[in-house]
Design a protein around this nucleic acid. Sequence first.
DNA 1: TGGATTAAGGTCAGATTCTGACCCGCAGTC
DNA 2: GACTGCGGGTCAGAATCTGACCTTAATCCA
Lengths: 219, 219
Amino acid sequence: MVGPEKRRRREKAQRKKAILKAARRLFTEHGFRPVTVESIAKKAELSKGAVYLYFKSKEEIYGQILQSDIESFHREMLQTFQPGRQASKILFDFADAYIDIFLNEREQFRTLMNFMLNAENLKLSRDVRKEIIRETNSTISLLEKILQLGVDSGEFMNIKPHKIYSLRNILWGLLNGIISLHLFVGDELTREERIRSGVREGVEAVIAGLKKNDCLEKS
Amino acid sequence: MVGPEKRRRREKAQRKKAILKAARRLFTEHGFRPVTVESIAKKAELSKGAVYLYFKSKEEIYGQILQSDIESFHREMLQTFQPGRQASKILFDFADAYIDIFLNEREQFRTLMNFMLNAENLKLSRDVRKEIIRETNSTISLLEKILQLGVDSGEFMNIKPHKIYSLRNILWGLLNGIISLHLFVGDELTREERIRSGVREGVEAVIAGLKKNDCLEKS
DNA sequence: TGGATTAAGGTCAGATTCTGACCCGCAGTC
DNA sequence: GACTGCGGGTCAGAATCTGACCTTAATCCA
């Protein structure tokens, strides 16, 4: 790679980055619909036409922001998986991390929630949607790993593979379901506490049926 | 000034700056002739053609470097002029500053000396040459101000305007003449000391004839 | 209801900027 | 004095950017 070519590649990447940065800020502040491509272009110091040299559509811009946010979200969730600990503890860590990221109100999580809540309105391209689903599945499958760990270490009773798969869906649904529920119910001030305790109780309830000890006690 | 336009102006300025920066480094290292326009372009991450969008010729690049160096040189020389002090002291300060800048071996002074020693080979454009001469005259006229200060304060005897003009030329010529002389004579190791003492003695000799006291003593 | 108006996503012809193959004169060589 | 290669400078075409314009859909108002 020679001189001018290298510079042009670098600048091309810079332009794209500038567009994404401008778009993320605007989307975070105003949501998807109200933000015009023109406003993104101006903020990125480009013309509208130039934006379409880097992205096929407004939704592709949104899709790429979504993707990178979900990737970094996934990266953070991965860090909760520390095989040395008890599986039940890891599960609670997982849930706590999920809530923490959400409550931090970081832009990418807001974008993510916005996606989850409005996915069907978004008409994303097949590829972007597929990629987002892949990433999300990757995070969800962390739950499988945690459950398997509990089984292997003897903490949980022996669970058949298809049951593990179903349990991970239950936990994931629980998490999002409880958060979503509490987003629209009650007042803002108690939301954080309601979400935390709600999720904790839900996870406890699921785990209760898995623990060997509990199982033995019950029998 | 709107978004894209502002960015384009900024980037245009950046390109020009990059060319000048690359050129200065190459000229300093190799001199004027051996540096090819192609090599300047490559170092500035542009093509040769692009260089000619910003400069009419290789010599214009050199001319602009020269100009900015001379400007900053002039700025530094201006700082030696502190009207509170004795005129003779200021004169010595002026000479010392001149030598200091030279001996610091800073790139712009090397460029300047190179210009002074090769001016007639350079075929600079009329405008650039005029501007350089204007700047240089501006620095030289500092000497006039210093001399006038000495006359006004009574330190020097009364000198007629045309004599002041002629004295400033003598001092300036002395400065450059002595430095040039010592650049090509003797060994590198003693050069600094030779230049310093040579210039000092020269300035002392000129001032000797101006001082009122000396004059009175002589008479 | 339905025509008018506005607004915003997307398009494209033309402007701007960049590139590198090419031209040409000149210095060095034989 | 013909030959060669080098390097300053040129220019046609490629790459990139711009903003007026097109299209569509939502909203307004008679």
